[in-house]
Simulated assay, not measured.
Amino acid sequence: MCAQPLEVAVEAHVRFIEANLGNAGLYPGTQRLEKEVVRAIGGMLHHEGAGGSIVSGGTEANITALWIARNVTRRKKVVFPKSAHFSFHKACDILGLEPQMVGLDEKFTADLDEVKRVVDNDVCAIVGIAGTTELGAVDDIEGLGALLPDGAFLHVDAAFGGFVLPFLDHGPPKFDFAVPEVSIITIDPHKMGMSTIPAGALMLRDEGQMRTIRKDAPYLDTVGQAAALSGTRCSAAVASTYAAMRFLGEEGYVKLVKGCMDVTRYALEKGTGIGLEPVMDPVMNILCFYAPDVVRIQSEMEKQGWKVSVARNPESLRLVIMPYVTRDSVDGLFADLEEVLGGLDD
């Protein structure tokens, strides 16, 4: 799900390859770039005054988000759907939190009735997913916000969807700071943001809450460590993200996402044309099809030189249509897939 980065993003990354944002006193330029990137992402997510930091990716951002939620609320429970990324299980293990995992509804989004049943005054955060890893489904973030206990956080994991949903042409669902209850958002520039790895972002409505995880390190050129799990931080990813966002701008991202969605819809037509049933109408550039013996299909397709993944909930073939995927490559993939399907009974 990570993108082939833009050339300008790679060039910027290389220029800052030695800089450590964890000691920003030695590298003040990268700290200024980080503030510009955070401001730009905040504006994209309907809150130009948002605080935040560039981190290594969605896993670090999700762990840090729950770290902040725990420290602010002093509560122990986290509610998240079965579709949530595995990093939430890691976070609960590391932070000593109690996971309250809820099921999915018929749209493969968090079941609000189940959420309502499990929330209580010991919940530090409810998690909603804006673009699930397997299906690209978007939880009802406004609905989750309505169930939020007083003082609890609403954290949105938009690691993949964050650079897709704002640029869709068919009225995307509200998922960001436009929803008043949303406290923290995870978003990954190294996915559809077209930056280099490792570039994730942790965005907060209230920047002051980052102080709850601050640890002093007076031996550094800066007084203390800002809100980050990592000590050494990759300045190159900050510069790369800055370059990618400045190069593309809103118009560029709209064009990029439109291209991916056009190819996604084309792949949907090709799949149904050979008798496959989609799991759901794609919200973004992730497409899954029901198929018999998906693990065997995956293996046979790999022999043909194709990398297709398998979703587990529900079991299905999964395609992620990144910007480098073309209609020609889709034609080739489904031609080989049709042949593989025809040989399953052999």
Rank of each mutant, 00 (worst) to 15 (best):
G49I: 07
L21Y: 07
G343A: 14
P189V: 01
R15A: 15
G143L: 06
H155L: 15
D188P: 12
P180Y: 09
V325W: 03
T264C: 09
A65S: 15
P292A: 03
P173A: 05
S309I: 01
L21H: 09
A199T: 13
A61W: 01
V14S: 09
K270P: 06
T222S: 13
G151V: 10
V164A: 07
L248W: 02
A228G: 11
L333W: 00
E114M: 14
E277W: 09
C92M: 05
A226I: 00
Y253P: 15
T133W: 13
A9S: 15
T64L: 14
Y242A: 05
N285L: 03
R32I: 15
M301F: 12
P323K: 04
M261T: 01
G151R: 03
T232G: 05
F247Q: 10
F334Y: 12
V295C: 04
R265L: 14
I274T: 14
T73A: 01
V156P: 01
V37R: 03
T222M: 08
T222W: 00
L33A: 05
V223R: 10
C92Y: 01
L341M: 11
A125M: 04
L135V: 04
L66I: 12
V308R: 08
W67V: 07
A130N: 03
V102T: 03
A159Q: 07
G29R: 08
A12C: 10
A237Q: 00
E18D: 14
I286C: 06
V182W: 04
L229I: 15
A201G: 08
A244M: 08
N71D: 11
A40N: 04
A110Y: 08
E11Q: 14
T232M: 02
A335R: 15
T186G: 11
M194E: 13
S87C: 14
H47T: 00
P314N: 10
R296I: 01
L144W: 02
N121R: 11
S53Y: 04
V283Q: 02
V14I: 10
E134Q: 12
G145Y: 05
L204S: 02
C2P: 11
V37P: 11
Y324T: 15
D188I: 07
T232W: 04
F160Y: 10
E277S: 12
E339Q: 13
Y219G: 14
V223I: 10
F175Q: 06
G22C: 10
V310R: 13
M280I: 11
